[in-house]
């Protein structure tokens, strides 16, 4: 036994669960706690937009073209005189909408297909799911978005659906592997022996034990969705009605060449802040949930 493992054994000798230990470890992680606080602050901004507390006037042409930063226009105005501050806040809402829809959709789909493949590993069901993952992995992402967008005739949900259709694959691969490991464990075999249905075994006995993987995967999908939104919106394949950081940056490419940076800076900095905080939160979560880390 290596020295590292030996230490791990003696530290892990307490009989408490993965979750309470993870919570304790996460609370002590200062970077993790701060990044969570930043993410929550963004969430409050987004919620305020949903409740109509602010940024309701994001589309109004209220001021002169390219007004500088002032008490009235905190971040200035854009090329046609819209308030950049209001547009930034509204875009935060869009980011959370895209992030949450994609994270939930991709994680749920990955969990269901991954656990099904793992549970029936070696059978044709598994083969079909693996084949599907390989196929979707081989289609260039932007082309898939475009193709889905054609099929849905320009529906604003085409982007969400395309992201879900690709982001579930990583989660499904991890869950499949974990389920193959779990299904040989005693309690699952016991459930088999007393005649619990396959459906119940997967969803009541196996999936709950992969929840820590799903949680981390959901945070990763959230970040990936926000980042993809910016590029897709810039290419005209993303957000169709409404405002987003991607659309703001797209707008700003003309302004930047004319030497006006407010739109670009506002969208970039706000987006960077959220993505960075979410990345660090996700890291801290992985550390806290990893049973191997003893550090």
């Amino acid at each position: 036994m290596s020295a590292r493992a030996e230490v791990a054994v003696s530290v892990g000798a307490h009989g408490d669960s993965l979750w309470s230990k993870a919570l304790r470890k996460f609370r002590r992680d200062r970077v993790g706690m701060w990044s969570l606080a930043v993410v929550l602050a963004y969430a409050v901004v987004a919620l305020g937009v949903v409740l109509g507390l602010w940024a309701g006037d994001w589309a109004d042409v209220s001021g002169p073209k390219w007004a500088p930063v002032s008490g009235e226009y905190w971040f200035g105005t854009n090329i046609i005189g819209q308030d950049i501050f209001a547009r930034s806040l509204y875009s935060t809402r869009t980011a959370f909408e895209v992030g949450l829809v994609v994270a939930l959709g991709a994680t749920a789909l990955g969990a269901v297909l991954g656990s099904t493949a793992g549970f029936f590993s070696g059978s044709w069901i598994d083969e079909v799911i693996i084949w599907l993952m390989g196929v979707l992995d081989s289609v260039p992402f932007i082309l898939l978005v475009a193709a889905i967008s054609y099929t849905l005739q320009g529906s604003p949900w085409a982007m969400h659906i395309a992201m879900i259709a690709t982001f579930w694959i990583g989660t499904a691969r991890l869950i499949r592997g974990e389920v193959i490991k779990l299904k040989s464990l005693e309690y699952v075999e016991a459930a088999h022996a007393i005649g619990v249905s396959r459906f119940m075994i997967i969803f009541r006995h196996i999936l709950p034990n992969t929840f820590h993987i799903l949680l981390v995967q959901a945070t990763l999908s959230f970040v990936a969705a926000i980042k993809s939104e910016v590029i897709l919106s810039f290419l005209g394949l993303g957000v169709k009605d409404g405002m987003s950081w991607g659309l703001m940056i797209s707008e700003s490419t003309f302004e930047v060449l004319a030497g006006f940076f407010n739109n670009f800076i506002a969208a970039s900095v706000l987006m960077f802040g959220l993505v960075m905080a979410f990345n660090m939160f996700s890291d801290a979560l992985q550390d806290a949930l990893d049973p191997r880390t003893v550090k």
Binding site: V230, G246, I249, M276, N279
Partner: peptide
Amino acid sequence: AVGMSISFLIAIIG
């Protein structure tokens, strides 16, 4: 972590 958190588009424009 900074490189991972900056959008490719923002890096290009920057």
